[in-house]
Amino acid sequence: MIKRYGDYFDDKVILITGAASGMGREAALLFGGQGASVVCADIDEGPGEDVAGTIRAEGGESQFIRTDVTRRPEINRLVEQAMAKYGKIDFLFNSAGSALKRSKFLDIDEDLLNLAIDLNFKSVFNMTQAVLPHMLQHQFGVIVNVSSMSVKRGGPGASIHYAAAKGAVTTLTLGVAREFAKEGIRCLSISPGPFDTAFQKASGTTAELAQKFLADVPMNRLGRPSEIAELVLFMCSNVCEFMTADTVYVNGGGGYR
């Protein structure tokens, strides 16, 4: 694999949640190929071990740690194990998340709302709070969170619970970035539109809804997870050092109507 940024990532460590599939998986493989040590966290053990194993088979350094990111004790254990293994965490990519299921607003019950908040917002809050003290010790770190294009639209008719949780992620990113900007920490978010990942099937996206999403994208295609991985790599690189607090919308020109 061609080194995008020279040897910059050779001594760096990244922790990725949701690393077993989709954007998290692509980011793990890309960072591993660029020389970074990759801590892969996910609730799905088999696919997670496969990602870490693939990185090692290609000459990289990686380990998988099974983690339910909706549980703070498991997050704490994840960070402790990563620190014990590598001694530092330079980058955190909070990729884990899901709309869980599509639902009209009046059909969203308390269980769905709580789970949406736990998985999509509180996991990001807790991961950031657990990792940040270690970054502050080195006065260096980049945190990249996955928000959503739905924050601009609200998710009407299908995923207001998800859009609201992701809106909180965008706000969290802004607050953390500004609070710690003078201490060597950058925090950014990415707001994707519809992408070709397991996310759509897992959340029960109907063919009709999928076509509606696609019809709103001028490029007339779904995004590819590798495109997000490349963006995360850029955000963490040494050519992006003045960028913090922002969210980057990645949706082929759509999502504005």
Results as ranks from 00 to 15, higher is better:
96 A>T: 14
199 F>L: 11
209 L>H: 15
229 A>K: 03
198 A>W: 05
47 P>I: 00
152 K>F: 01
228 I>L: 13
1 M>K: 08
232 V>A: 06
208 E>K: 08
31 F>T: 09
53 G>M: 03
242 F>H: 14
59 G>E: 13
176 V>G: 02
243 M>E: 12
113 L>Q: 04
147 S>E: 12
188 L>Q: 13
205 T>E: 12
236 C>F: 02
154 G>P: 04
229 A>W: 02
44 D>I: 13
56 R>K: 13
209 L>C: 10
10 D>R: 03
110 E>S: 12
111 D>V: 02
208 E>Q: 07
189 S>Y: 05
58 E>L: 01
239 V>S: 05
207 A>N: 11
42 D>R: 00
79 V>S: 05
212 K>I: 15
36 A>I: 04
100 L>I: 15
220 N>Q: 15
240 C>A: 15
102 R>S: 14
75 I>P: 07
48 G>P: 08
133 P>F: 11
117 I>F: 13
83 M>L: 14
198 A>N: 13
190 I>E: 02
36 A>Y: 04
257 R>V: 02
236 C>M: 07
224 R>V: 09
170 T>K: 09
188 L>H: 10
188 L>R: 08
55 I>R: 01
93 F>P: 04
183 E>F: 02
87 G>W: 13
62 S>Y: 00
251 N>L: 12
86 Y>H: 10
166 K>S: 01
73 P>M: 02
109 D>T: 07
243 M>F: 15
174 L>Y: 15
189 S>I: 12
25 R>N: 03
245 A>K: 00
